[in-house]
């Protein structure tokens, strides 16, 4: 076991998403062959390559200044440039997204909360952009209000979720209800709110609890799909939710996404940029609660292990 000297605690080990593409025919697990370090320290010497990799990754994470929790929109060309010296299959897929009018990407920090944070941001943003914001906000708030009994039915104490709920709902209400200083929510204030760890993480936690409550209160719909992402074993709804939904920093997978679409009564889709399409097209997977609304589409971009927001607008038009 290691103890780090830095001020911040090491991040919890990340789980790989279960739907990561696996290279066909590849039988051996990748081993850490990167720049090793020679050491006489018996504690380090006794570590397995995987443990060394994790330790190294932890140090890198602490050393590199972190990306904001959520960032401004950057043009697709910026993303493309990152792949230009690498995989042609990725650049082809990025070109495909551009041909489908996706012009930008709004990135989130890769902290295991990226799915929930991306979804929450875009969820609020499109309420703000609705043709009739008062109507959109009213309907979103009533869906969220109606979710409170479900959280209690799932066994959560009120004191456990009410602060997170209040934070989320007050951001949404601010679209139409001015604060004490007379201002309503603007794109800039929305971005600031989601870059503030306390606010942003509170919203993420609320979405996690909502997802968990949806699964816990309707086990019949989900129990056949609650697999341990590493071991592949079926888990009980309670075990699954405690370990892979409620716990901070645990990636969402298909089950969590389906449950959250249902709980929020929204449709969204995920574009899979995985470098695995022969002709360069990108698969979009739809998570539909069957709702018809007039809101802008909510589209996330998936790259192995990470979610961002896919945009048809640019930063100039947003702010």
């Amino acid at each position: 076991m290691q103890s780090s000297d830095g001020e911040t605690p090491p991040e919890a080990p990340r789980l790989e998403s279960a739907d990561l593409p696996t290279a066909e025919g590849q039988e051996t697990l990748p081993t850490y062959t990167g720049p090793g370090f020679v050491t006489n320290n018996p504690e380090l010497a006794s570590l397995t390559p995987a443990q060394l990799y994790e330790l190294n990754q932890g140090l890198l994470d602490e050393a590199v200044p972190q990306r904001p929790l959520i960032d401004q929109i950057v043009p697709m060309a910026v993303l493309r440039a990152e792949y230009e010296n690498g995989s042609a299959s990725f650049t082809k897929q990025i070109d495909y997204l551009v041909s489908q009018s996706y012009t930008g990407i709004r990135r989130t920090r890769g902290d295991g909360d990226c799915f929930y944070r991306s979804l929450a941001f875009r969820y609020v943003e499109r309420l703000m952009n609705a043709a009739d914001p008062a109507l959109a906000v009213g309907s979103a708030v009533s869906t969220l209000e109606a979710s409170l009994p479900m959280l209690e039915a799932a066994g959560f104490q009120k004191l456990v979720f009410e602060d997170f709920y209040d934070t989320f709902v007050s951001i949404i209400k601010r679209i139409v209800q001015p604060e004490a200083d007379g201002t309503t929510l603007t794109p800039l204030l929305l971005l600031e709110a989601f870059q503030n760890p306390e606010v942003s993480n509170s919203v993420v936690v609320y979405l996690r609890l909502l997802t968990s409550a949806q699964i816990r209160t309707d086990p019949d719909s989900y129990q056949d799909f609650l697999f341990h992402p590493e071991l592949g074993e079926l888990m009980t709804p309670r075990e699954f939710c405690e370990t892979f939904v409620e716990a901070v920093g645990k990636e969402a997978d298909h089950v969590q996404m389906t449950a959250l679409a249902r709980a929020l009564k929204i449709n969204f889709s995920v574009a899979y940029l995985d470098g695995r399409s022969a002709d360069g097209h990108v698969d979009f997977v739809n998570f539909n609660d069957g709702i018809q609304d007039e809101l802008e589409p909510l589209v996330l971009l998936y790259r192995p292990g990470h979610y961002d927001i896919l945009e048809k607008q640019s930063e100039d038009t947003v702010i």
Binding site: A12, P13, F156, V205, L209, E242, E246, A247, V248
Partner: peptide, 10 residues
């Protein structure tokens, strides 16, 4: 208390 901490706990 570590990687399975959840705000549900008090």
């Amino acid at each position: 208390l570590g990687n399975e901490w959840s705000p549900v706990l008090s």
